[in-house]
Design a protein around this nucleic acid. Structure first.
Length: 634
RNA sequence: GCUCAAGUAGCUCAGUCGGUAGAGCACAUCCUUGGUAAGGAUGAGGUCACCGGUUCAAAUCCGGUCUUGAGCUCCA
């Protein structure tokens, strides 16, 4: 009997008898066999040693594929657990998966792992890798597995075992003296793990539930070569330089002070200027797209929050009530009740719809102290909020316009990559099934029509409606939600919203709640990280710094400044009696886009010398040429 | 909120064994007036996060509080 093995490039190989995946890889090329980590046989990830005994499709995974990386890191996690068990035999192992960037393993141990501990573990892992221990798969019965792990006193493994479905095969993987319960597959031997770095240790709850015991987690990463590891560590260093908290301090954009309170942002003049520019652009874009701007108060009576339901379902995120002439008031965690009250302040004909009410509305939410993070997670923030109230037959058109509008706005700030998520109806939800269906379909249809890739988060919608979220990545690849487009079947009911239809009857409108930037704070942070502090010219708080070479050119510099200010450019003069090199260095460190150097030569001829941040000297030119050069970039 | 780590001048950080603080940058004044990433001198600047304890003596040791960081969890 012979069998055919089809490869991803479309070629086929014939074998007279059953053969291991590794053998096939070796036949293709010894280099592939060396780099091979796992085999995907008819779509199923398997060990390289797996024997193929019938016609199959085979993909050999190396570190170049996502699947290969995942498996490699997972195997490294096992190796780390082995090292930890050797160093501290009393520690119990729990779980250790691969993550987007590397792996972690959670251990039950009293003390936290210190940096010295991590060092020791890393050393031991290197020794274990040098021993080139093969990873063996073994399948066994549930009873055998339970008995074995009980003998090893690995109670967490027994808990995991008890939750594995009856019909699933139970397997363990062994390398050297270490056995772990694992579905696999794994790399063939520890020698493949060449470069390991344990990055940090921290606490993590068993099963992510804060009612459970706090375990000690170690994060790490590994690569087939030291070069790749070095590159990765380099990337982390570069990312740290782009951290918005660091840039915020270096460029004097904002601060958060103990005295003012955690999660409350102070915007310094430079940061405030950037924010102002973002907001001005935002308002203009909204006015041009059929929105009406509104303003609403920061506090509202308890009645309002009872009507909206926030006191019921959102109370733990709201600050406690304040007493105003024996009436209870709450500071707002959301803007919706106000916008809906504005809508309800008058009667509406179907002819007026859609009504689009927009506000840069500052809200305050109680966030647990541990989650606060720079500008990304704060307690007081400004949502670029809007509520679209429309008739059922306007829904699809509105959704489509919204998606285009949102992406256009994000793109105009320089963003190019987005992750789009569609979240559907959760278990507990309000509203009619037909409404959910209609809303979800219009979200999906719009995404498809616009040819956008998106992932579906089944059951991930809010209880009041389905939604689309658009996320942007920060410097180290963490995704942060910016845009959110949410249907709301709850509030129109609660506020008894109406419009009068063509039939002269009152109808319930649809309501879409949306934020494009998400919050100004978070958006500002991602913007800063995305550009590494080198903001596009139109957003730079100071667009040009004029640098006179000696004090003798101060007057000329001031003249130039007023001419540039008249042209609408944000321009300053560095009038300190310092050398030109010093002033340039200073302006470069402040990431000011344009520097204008004027010495005796320029003053005499009425010219100027331009220098562009990140590019260097652009040479001397007359005023009109320089202005054209700058305006071209705006 | 929980686990671990940290908090010293505006910023970045030293500070040994407990003996009431130091550098560089930034800032101010003076000298220097210079051509594309740091010229020189002098000076000012600190309740060592806060509160309490141990001690003859606390930045240092202990306890508590606040804040920050990495995670868990949660979300714009």
């Amino acid at each position: 009997m012979s069998l055919k093995i089809s490869l991803p490039d479309g070629s086929k190989r014939e074998y007279p008898a059953a053969v291991s995946a590794l053998q096939v890889a070796t036949d293709i090329s010894p280099r592939l066999a060396d780099a091979a980590l796992a085999a995907e046989i008819n779509g199923k990830m398997s060990d390289l040693s797996t024997i193929i005994d019938s016609d199959s499709e085979l993909i050999i995974h190396t570190f170049k594929t996502d699947e290969g990386k995942e498996l490699y890191w997972h195997s490294t996690a096992h190796l780390m657990a082995q090292a930890v068990k050797q160093l501290w035999p009393d520690v119990q192992v729990t779980i250790g998966p691969a993550i987007e960037q590397g792996f972690y393993y959670d251990f039950d141990r009293e003390e936290a792992f210190s940096d010295e501990d991590l060092q020791k573990i890393e050393e031991r892992m290197k020794e274990l890798s040098a021993q080139d221990l093969p990873y063996y798969r073994k399948e066994l019965s549930r009873a055998e597995a339970i008995e074995m792990f009980r003998g090893m006193n690995e109670m967490y493994k027994i808990e995991i075992l008890s939750e594995i479905p009856e019909d699933q095969v139970i397997s363990t993987y062994t390398q050297g003296d270490f056995i772990d319960l694992c579905r696999g597959p794994h790399i063939s031997s520890s020698g493949k793990i060449k470069a390991v770095k344990l990055l940090k240790s921290s606490g993590a709850y068993w099963r992510g539930d804060e009612k459970n015991k706090m375990l000690k987690r170690i994060y790490g990463i590994s690569f087939p070569t030291n070069k790749e590891l070095k590159e990765y560590l380099n990337f982390l260093e570069e990312a740290a330089k782009r951290d918005h908290r660091k840039l915020g301090k270096d460029l004097d954009l904002f601060s958060i002070s103990d005295e003012v309170g955690a999660g409350l942002v102070l915007w310094h003049p430079n940061g405030a200027m950037i924010r102002h520019l973002i907001e001005a652009y935002w308002k203009d874009a909204h006015l041009r797209n059929g929105y009406k701007l509104v303003y609403s108060p920061h506090v509202g009576r308890s009645n309002l929050w009872e009507t909206s339901g926030h006191l019921g379902f959102y109370k733990e995120n709201m600050y406690s009530k304040m007493d105003v002439e024996s009436q209870d008031y709450y500071i707002k965690p959301m803007n919706c009740p106000f916008h809906l009250s504005i809508y309800n302040a008058s009667h509406h004909s179907y002819r007026e719809l859609p009504v689009r009410l927009a506000e840069l509305g500052t809200v305050y939410r109680y966030e647990r102290s541990g989650v606060l993070h720079g500008l990304m997670r704060v307690r007081g923030f400004t949502q670029d909020d809007a509520h679209i109230i429309c008739t059922p037959d306007q829904v699809s058109n509105e959704v489509e316009k919204l998606i285009v509008f949102s992406l256009d706005m994000l793109k105009s700030f320089g963003f190019k990559e987005f992750m789009i998520y569609l979240s559907t109806k959760p278990e507990a939800a309000v509203g009619e099934d037909a409404d959910w269906e209609m809303a979800t379909q219009s979200l999906k249809a719009s995404l498809n029509k616009l040819n956008l890739d998106f992932s579906v988060d089944e059951g991930g919608g809010a209880f009041y409606g389905p939604k689309i979220d658009i996320k942007i990545k920060d410097a180290i690849g963490r995704a942060w939600q910016c845009t959110t487009i949410q249907f709301d079947f709850n509030l129109p009911e609660r506020f008894d919203m109406q419009y009068i239809g063509a039939d002269n009857q009152a109808h319930r409108p649809y309501m879409i709640h949306r934020a494009v930037l998400g919050s100004v704070e978070r958006f500002f942070a991602t913007l800063l990280e995305y550009h590494g502090g080198n903001l596009p010219l139109w957003l730079a708080p100071v667009q040009m710094m004029i640098l006179p070479i000696t004090d003798a050119q101060l007057d000329y510099a001031k003249d130039l400044q007023s001419k540039l200010l008249e042209e609408g450019l944000r321009c300053e003069v560095d009038s300190r009696s310092e050398k030109i090199g010093y002033k340039i260095r200073d302006a470069e460190l402040k990431k000011i886009p344009f520097m204008c150097i004027v010495g005796k030569r320029e003053a005499d001829e009425g010219s100027l010398t331009l220098r562009r941040h990140t590019q260097g000297d652009l040479g001397s030119m007359d005023f009109a040429t320089a202005l054209a050069r700058i305006k071209h970039e705006l």
